[in-house]
Design a protein around this nucleic acid. Sequence first.
DNA 1: CATGAATGAGATTTCATTCAT
DNA 2: TATGAATGAAATCTCATTCAT
Lengths: 176, 176, 176, 176
Amino acid sequence: MTDIAKQIGITKPAIYYHFESKEALFLAVVDNFLTKLESWTLSIIEADIAIKDMLQMLFGTLKDAKGSIAMLTGNNSGNALEFHTYVLMFEGIKLFPEVKERIDAFYTRFIHVLAEKIKDAQAQGEIRSDIHADAFAFQIMAAIEGALLMGILNTTTDIESMAQDMFENTWLGVAA
Amino acid sequence: MTDIAKQIGITKPAIYYHFESKEALFLAVVDNFLTKLESWTLSIIEADIAIKDMLQMLFGTLKDAKGSIAMLTGNNSGNALEFHTYVLMFEGIKLFPEVKERIDAFYTRFIHVLAEKIKDAQAQGEIRSDIHADAFAFQIMAAIEGALLMGILNTTTDIESMAQDMFENTWLGVAA
Amino acid sequence: MTDIAKQIGITKPAIYYHFESKEALFLAVVDNFLTKLESWTLSIIEADIAIKDMLQMLFGTLKDAKGSIAMLTGNNSGNALEFHTYVLMFEGIKLFPEVKERIDAFYTRFIHVLAEKIKDAQAQGEIRSDIHADAFAFQIMAAIEGALLMGILNTTTDIESMAQDMFENTWLGVAA
Amino acid sequence: MTDIAKQIGITKPAIYYHFESKEALFLAVVDNFLTKLESWTLSIIEADIAIKDMLQMLFGTLKDAKGSIAMLTGNNSGNALEFHTYVLMFEGIKLFPEVKERIDAFYTRFIHVLAEKIKDAQAQGEIRSDIHADAFAFQIMAAIEGALLMGILNTTTDIESMAQDMFENTWLGVAA
DNA sequence: CATGAATGAGATTTCATTCAT
DNA sequence: TATGAATGAAATCTCATTCAT
């Protein structure tokens, strides 16, 4: 709390005027982040575009992961930010069951919507019919989440440059 | 430290007899985990088996993620373990530059070895030659890491049951 | 720290609000003492008075050593004080190089100023010219410091009563 | 105790085999030092030599203060030793009334013996009769103690080179 | 005589929180 | 709204001493 007060240039009691406790402040931060994350993600996933373009967009987010996170957090103080976003989520889950449930629901919804899109595309003949649609939706989500995580854990590999190739590999494998 | 001492049935000073500080103890834990993780992972990735079998094995780890982590940590006290393994890694990275570097090197090596396997398979005619091999290796790693992460963040979806379908989708897409 | 907090009627954390650490608090105490000691001593040594009167004053400080220290420390809780002043200085030297340097400079300056006074007095014909001036300045300082120290180590001998005789012996020996 | 055990290359319990407690060990050290100091000092002060030669010898100890202390402590690990000898005495006084009394008696005896010598010398016509003998004995002791102390506190000034001049100043002043 | 591994008691320090103004 | 100065509770760490072998 001392550090936060110092950073924003007020005193500790002033923080307590606005927030009941450290946990309440923290929850407000997580809450704010999740709200933005949800609306941003849904704006992509519920867009009325062809499946190929949607996959392109999804893999495209990897090309500017830093920019996206800076937008979501309202902070672009650089490199450590993505890392701290993960820490934020993990701490949030540890402390608040409601955060855990919300993140859970977020993913479930994301995967569900994407799976429906894929099934439509299969009906439409755009995607091979022998692909397991639910697993594929999950797989896309996992590949993107995993790539973001590895962008933090494996700084030697440059993900941003791989995003396009990953998309092409994926599309090559599922296009009807 | 009080909790740890209580758990293992000794007094706090006894811990300090064996470890210089709380951080040193923590580093020893992370170190131990990483050492096991590295040797286990390399035993898979450097096995002399067909690429299809290797992919099958890699996705197979998702089927018993809990069991694998229990083995690596020597602890099978259940559900929260995978979650805490991530927290362990994140804290380790936050505190020790050496841990960050080690994890980075681990992934780089993993991806490199896998990419070579894939290129060999392409030369052998087992995998389509129009697949971007480096991106594909990265993609496999990311999909598995992402799936593990989502196993924690999205408990509603049952990954373990999806592992086989994910493998089939993947192989369908790349097999020559 | 517990004892100090109790003595001054606050809690330990309150001390830490004002001082970074136990050492910082200790340094502040030593610093305060040295600052007062320096200004008090220089007010004597740089006074514009005859050498004989100055020597008289210097030996005179021995007559009320306890009072002088009580003044410098702002504490007159009696007997153990002089002893603790030495402990303070020794601990200060042990812990902080800056304290060592400051005390060193203090003595060097004191001796230098006094030696100049003595040389002037020799030129003036007040002090015998065959006296080694630098050594005599040092000797005065040493005799006074030594007498103060012995006031602590040898409580059987009553220094205060000897101060006047010491001055007379000294003056007898050097007066022209 | 850990440091001491490490220094002398044994384990802590081994120290406790030889000494009841930390304080007992410390007292043994102080005791050993004081015993040597007493016999060494008395061998000088009770020597059957002319007063002038005795003063010469006393001031002479300043010329090799480091050597003398190394001899008394059985340690010649250099510079910090004199300093620690003072710390030893002060701690000893703080902890053990018997040490305080012993040091007190040591000085009292020293001064008494020296004062008698001086009175004899006055009767003999070697020293001016208008010198206050008791104060002079004390003064010699104080000058030497003070010079030793300043050798530690004021390292800028080189005492060893001043020893001879101090003696000459002193003798000049008291010789009949 | 000696040791590796402890321990009880307490020292220093931290930190979320609050009081008085 | 805001602050300087605290505080209760607990965390990390130290250290003289001892136990079991």
